[in-house]
Nucleic acid binder design. Sequence first.
DNA 1: ACCAACAAGATTGTCAACAATTTTGTTTCG
DNA 2: CGAAACAAAATTGTTGACAATCTTGTTGGT
Lengths: 216, 216
Amino acid sequence: MQKEARPGTGEQAKQHALVQLRQAILRGEMAPAQRLVENELAEQFGVTRASVRAALIELESEGLVERIRNRGSRVRVVTVEEAVAITECRMALEGLCAAKAAVEASDEQLAELADLGAAMTKAVADGEPVTYSELNHEVHARIREFSGQQVAVGLLERLNAQLVRHRFQLALRPGRAQQSLSEHLAMIEAISARDPQAAEAAVRVHLGSVIDALRD
Amino acid sequence: MQKEARPGTGEQAKQHALVQLRQAILRGEMAPAQRLVENELAEQFGVTRASVRAALIELESEGLVERIRNRGSRVRVVTVEEAVAITECRMALEGLCAAKAAVEASDEQLAELADLGAAMTKAVADGEPVTYSELNHEVHARIREFSGQQVAVGLLERLNAQLVRHRFQLALRPGRAQQSLSEHLAMIEAISARDPQAAEAAVRVHLGSVIDALRD
DNA sequence: ACCAACAAGATTGTCAACAATTTTGTTTCG
DNA sequence: CGAAACAAAATTGTTGACAATCTTGTTGGT
């Protein structure tokens, strides 16, 4: 175990630990339910335990880490039912964002969405699921952004972070991309048509199908 | 300044500080934008600074407190635009909960809602705005609870906590209770009729009118 | 009088040591 | 052989002190 970076360069130690730990969890480098011992993490990141501790507290309220009194922290495992519940909330909130984006987005932003749609179509045609998954994520992020609804954006980012592991499993499923593609195109079309109700409906259809896929 | 309680009785110091501070903020005992100095709070609650610190980090991600690097913490002030944005999110999430509650709630739980509706009607008739406001809050809490949607419940509780100050202002407005009452009764009726779509629509109507009232 | 540089005070960020708690392994008794 | 009691190890919770940073008040020059 060697120290990864130098927190002495003015970079706040707690922030450093927070960023590193979050990345490690989101990248899936930590096994599900893996124990997170404060001392080990402190040495690994080259900071003190107090900083790791502060980071863990923050990650707990982000829903990425589970902490039990006097028993330590572990990577939180999201069950399938939880993933479904989270996606239901996404349905409500992303529906709101899509409706607002249909009204608020500039013409340039709509063009950007159209470009993303074309890129997704190409990725599916070329059979590149990884690229497609990234574009998928990007489309959702852009729609959130264009809505201008900061509160919803914050909530959604937190929710999405909890779904990383399930997202992986979903993306690699054969035939999933094709269905997902048409749903995304429908979302983009409705927003471009500046039709809030249709945009919200399209998002609901899409995430409804995600829920079905999650349930296997 | 005297110590308020005994953290030595096994009650974890950080939890103690967290609960105390949260209550103080929610009760409005801390003036808006008031500075929260770690040392003062530590002495006031009879715990050490580290515990206060941990509590502040948690309250920050709950959106109740604002922390700036090396500059300290203060009670977060929610602007009117933010309150509107938060209520838009409530609209989406409580709509989801109402729809699920219409399907999932037991007959006993529906009876409980009916009782609350009757109590609200009486409170308005008797001209007791404080009682009405409490019942109002209770109805929303029950509907959330009956939905069984744990994730949405968590998000909504966080959002509601940020609105305390605005809620006060809203409740005392003359004529507001009458309009609010009929909207609540419509929500209860739709859920009792086990009609998810109507329930969701009723919630949206209600919170839409809250948004209008917020904007003055 | 005004502005910049500087110094003093206040406050947060970090650290290492200590105490409390839980878990695990061992022993002893039935 | 199994179960309860006990002891040892690991880990988290807490504490007080120290360092870094920001704010404020003061001073000196123009």
